[in-house]
């Protein structure tokens, strides 16, 4: 369906555009002069100055896997994060926990857990969807590497970044 667009009726002065162009030039000139004389200061010089100290709690840095106080990898390889991940950065290979293991009750664990940090967009959907409180976005944001391979965070790396999370719900206890 065609929707007629309403256009403003311009008078001759507005239609000439010149006054608008001139006033536009003055605006940019004002910014130019103000910056030259140091009266505007909105940027910081990144590697020397950082805002690490003022990062808010909800800051979304690199996603990482966490262990709980019992030392258990909290992820049970439900693959919901793999499903929700908009750029498909996450790849999980599920595995079965052997019956003689300390956490045999959990049955399932991620044998491989890769996050391709070239693809990751730091949206935080994985953290939001995780039913096990196993993946969190940490405050690290400097992710660099020389090869694509280096930019894929494997399970070990993710656990290293994540560390131990205190105060999460311990769901897989005997009560369940």
């Amino acid at each position: 369906m065609a929707i007629p667009a309403s256009r403003p009726n311009l008078n001759w002065r507005e239609r000439a555009f010149l006054p608008a162009i001139v006033s536009g030039l003055f605006i940019t000139w004002r910014h130019f002069v103000r910056y030259i004389f140091g009266r505007t200061k909105v940027t910081i010089q990144y590697p020397e100055q950082t805002r690490d100290a003022d990062l808010p709690d909800y800051y979304r840095g690199t996603p990482a896997l966490v262990k709980d106080e019992q030392g258990r990898i909290r992820c049970v390889a439900c693959q919901l994060c793999e499903f929700i991940c908009p750029p498909r950065a996450i790849k999980i290979l599920p595995g079965e926990i052997p019956t003689d293991d300390r956490f045999a009750k959990v049955e399932k664990y991620p044998e491989e857990f890769d996050i391709d940090m070239i693809r990751c967009i730091y949206c935080g959907m994985c953290e939001e969807v995780c039913p096990e409180q196993a993946i969190f976005l940490r405050k690290d944001y400097v992710v660099t590497g020389f090869t694509r391979e280096e930019m894929v965070h494997r399970k070990d790396k993710l656990l290293e970044i994540g560390g131990v999370m205190h105060g999460v719900v311990l769901k897989w206890n005997d009560k369940k």
């Binding site: 910056y35 505007t40 909105v42 940027t43």
Partner: peptide, 10 residues
């Protein structure tokens, strides 16, 4: 540089 100054950045 000029575009940066106009946009308030270095």
């Amino acid at each position: 540089r000029v575009s940066a100054f106009i946009q308030d950045r270095p």
